[in-house]
């Protein structure tokens, strides 16, 4: 097995149960390939970080620091104007 195939199986292992032959070939490749071992670790790392972003709470504190104040003031203005108009037309 080469790294391109291994990378694919590492990704697939996050989606489905690998079959016996795949599992076997992948574990052997991982024994001898440091780079793919790192890749596997990093995918786990990414999954963990991304799952943290599921929770709405994660957006409370960072929200205001991610958008600058002027930008967000303008956006609030646009949104509230649009909403008023849409409610008026219904």
């Amino acid at each position: 097995m080469r790294c391109d195939q291994a990378s694919r199986l590492i990704s697939h292992s996050q989606e489905r149960q690998l079959n016996g032959a795949e599992r076997c070939a992948l574990s052997f490749h991982l024994l001898i390939c440091r780079v793919c071992r790192k890749y596997k670790k990093q995918l786990k790392f990414m999954r963990k970080i991304l799952s943290k972003l599921r929770d709405p709470q994660a957006y409370l504190e960072t929200a205001s620091s991610l958008i600058d104040e002027r930008q967000s003031g303008e956006m609030r203005g646009r949104i509230s104007k649009e909403i008023h108009e849409k409610l008026d037309s219904t």
Partner: peptide, 24 residues
Amino acid sequence: YFNKSRHWKDRMLSWKADPETLAE
């Protein structure tokens, strides 16, 4: 992502960080 001999083109560093803290 892979060269002709089907090895990684990327260097692949060790990511030294705690995902919990980094997410914030």
